[in-house]
């Protein structure tokens, strides 16, 4: 089970451990974004620090309907203590957890300042 919290900006925050190809690890906080149907977004600074390998470039549709080109990198996420290799869009925002990373999970959110976030994985 993964636990998090709803912050004062009404964002559901969870802590994630990331691992790069050389074994470098970083703990980050990411916002659950149910409107994002990918796995993860990470700021380019973090991509560079972990030396995440470039995978591809690809288009994404932004919230305003426009299209933008992103670089996609691969990263290993420690998801409920299990390493999972996912692709991450390099985007200079707060890291986002998308719906594909939540695939097969049950997500509970107490939507209030300080509320709990629970992600139950199927593992």
């Amino acid at each position: 089970m993964i636990e998090g919290v709803v912050n004062s900006s009404y964002e559901a925050i969870v802590a994630l451990s990331l691992r790069g190809p050389d074994g470098d690890a970083r703990d980050i906080e990411a916002v659950i974004d149910t409107g994002y149907n990918g796995f993860l977004t990470l700021p380019p600074r973090l991509v560079a620090e972990l030396r995440l390998p470039f995978v591809t470039s690809a288009q994404a549709i932004l919230a305003n309907g426009s299209e933008e080109t992103f670089d996609v990198h691969s990263v290993t996420v420690l998801w409920d203590s299990h390493p999972v290799a996912v692709d991450a869009y390099a985007s200079d925002t707060t890291p986002l957890v998308g719906m594909r990373l939540l695939d097969q999970c049950d997500v509970y959110v107490q939507v209030r300042d300080g509320g709990r976030v629970l992600i139950e994985t199927s593992n």
Partner: peptide, 22 residues
Amino acid sequence: ATDVWSVRVGHRAVYSFAGSSV
């Protein structure tokens, strides 16, 4: 192959932040 471009077949984009797959 270093310069790789990816497309989701039948869609405008691979992923969407817009809450729908177009």
